[in-house]
Design a protein around this nucleic acid. Structure first.
Lengths: 336, 336
DNA sequence: TTGTATGCGTTATCAG
DNA sequence: CTGATAACGCATACAA
């Protein structure tokens, strides 16, 4: 089972490899007749292009690399599916890497992708990501870099993000409307755009309602289950809080668990609202109010942006994907 | 920012590219002195190997491809993490593709990986997978193929699977011990090894208890949420069942939801047990008994098998990863 | 519209 | 131990 190359099919047709190459590439000026002939015998002989050789020659490829913090989060795995769907249809391939929120692994992933001459890179920054010199390196090499969700403004290129501000604003407003008055906020690192924006949405909703914004009510780096547990207790006992708007579902989950353990009833005595609409949000007891980020749509838009870039478009799109507040039991005191 | 190559470093050291290549490759007979010198200036000049060129020359690469049905399932995403962890440490890269349980996409993924000259492939078959000619093609090309979870015995190569039989057997035995007497089984396609084995475990546990195995109690192709809902109602109303052992957590979830809707109390009136130990299993109400497949360990073992193969080992390992029954509320009538 | 020649960066073979 | 040379398969600048 020998691999057959353009040479083989050239020999068979008694033409040169260049002609075959051009016929296969379609775009060049080539007589329709020979093109047809080439196509036909290529198929007949079972020709499969050697993309490696093409990459070496062209210095780039039709493969797109994607780096995400972790594929085990519903948001990211759905974004990936959205990207893949669109990219495959357009004839590009996708290869996926995880950074595990770790700068070292992120750098390694970048290096690997560059070494494999991907045509473009899609990425969402890891928590630890800083400096971004490894990413700027790609940009300098001329590799289109499309950022999504967690983005850095000092890196050029298209950016696709959620409307985090509004998601937070609407969430907090909803809590206020349900009579919660002392709402704390569980945030991620405020150095990251998404958490900063959600914090600002939180702040805006409070101020609009004539309530003062208290820095002590913001728990930074509190987006995992454990911190949710720990901090909801502090919020309740030390700050007299009666609700939490969390920037992530996992810390909201932790909060719910701790509250149950403490015998505090939700939503009667304490309101909880999360972000990301993880699958478990609707399965818990009580069910968890959360913000749906429409990751699949985001994935599609990312893919479109990448494709435009790969086609040489200079413009850098900045796309904002709307979010939807999904109201469930954990925050709903007023039945409508 | 020009890419520097082995030629550049050869020129600088006034030696030939071949020597540089050998020094970098380490293994050949080369004087320690020149090796050290090459290594040093390579680092100093910021040399990064062009793996594409190497792949073209060698016809293979240090990149491993992995095809899974879907990354949004806890089991698969954890297996991936386990593989990645080990593979990265050994200096290999991993690229991931999803088949979405679709034969066409599976074939496309195989083609893409072959075109990209991956050194080896890890895969778990999609539900639709049949014939396997696309996979055998890889084997014929000399690409090591390691299968896991859903495997086909007609494809040679190492196979890493769970002890599905025991997982099922222990689950059903546990249900019996808790006084459930009419246990139905939600299965996937019985053409797939994992579901077949689990069915046999179910059967064995029943027979051991002196109960007859009834084919009507097995619901094939019932592993998604919707079928779980539909079939639990049938099981209850038409078959007088009092428990279900499901081959997947999603149909167990559907069953729990439907039972709640119908006002049937779990586990008092009906027992439910799942498979895979999805994250939501411990979050539901009642919490769901399930089988932990230890996917991370499985991933590690897969990686080790691949590495052995890549090093030219001829032996085909068949590894069975043990499972653990996680007993939770949905099946526990007898408190211990 | 087609052919000719060259090179992408690396490694393997053969000599020395 | 090191050097020279060729080749992996393809795409393109240039010539015809």
């Amino acid at each position: 089972m020998k691999k057959i190359t353009i040479k083989d099919i050239a020999r068979k047709l008694d033409i040169t490899p260049s002609t075959v190459s051009r016929a296969l590439a379609d775009n060049s000026r080539i007589s329709p007749k020979t093109r047809a002939k080439v196509m036909e015998t290529a198929k007949k002989m079972g020709y499969e292009p050697n993309v490696i050789a093409a990459s070496l020659r062209k210095g780039t490829s039709d493969t797109v690399g994607m780096i995400v913090p972790g594929i085990n989060r519903s948001f990211f795995s759905n974004v990936i599916s959205g990207v893949e769907e669109m990219l495959n249809n357009a004839g590009f391939n996708l290869i996926i890497s995880q950074s595990n929120e770790n700068l070292k692994k992120e750098k390694l992933a970048v290096q690997t992708l560059m070494q494999n001459r991907v045509g473009a890179v899609i990425m969402s920054l890891s928590v630890q990501s800083s400096g971004h010199s490894h990413i700027k390196k790609m940009v300098k090499r001329g590799i289109p870099v499309v950022q999504f969700d967690r983005v850095a403004s000092d890196i050029p290129g298209p950016k696709i993000v959620n409307d985090n501000f509004t998601g937070a604003y609407v969430s907090v407003k909803h809590l206020l409307e349900n009579g919660f008055k002392r709402i704390v906020h569980f945030s991620g690192s405020l150095g990251i755009n998404v958490y900063k924006e959600r914090m600002e949405g939180y702040k805006a909703a409070l101020e609009e309602a004539g309530m003062e914004f208290n820095e002590r009510f913001v728990f930074e780096n509190s987006i995992i289950r454990e911190t949710g547990k720990r901090n909801v207790e502090i919020a309740l006992n030390k700050l007299g809080a009666d609700a939490v708007f969390s920037s992530g579902d996992f810390s909201a989950l932790g909060a719910l668990e701790k509250l149950k353990e403490m015998g505090v009833s939700v939503p009667e005595e304490f309101g909880v609202s999360g972000f990301a609409n993880e699958p478990f949000a609707e399965l818990m007891h009580p069910t968890l109010t959360s913000v749906e980020q429409n990751p699949r749509e985001m994935g599609n838009r990312i893919a479109l942006a990448i494709i435009k870039k790969l086609k040489g478009d200079e413009e850098d799109e900045n796309i904002v994907i709307p979010v939807d507040l999904i109201i469930r039991e954990s925050s709903m005191r007023i039945k409508s």
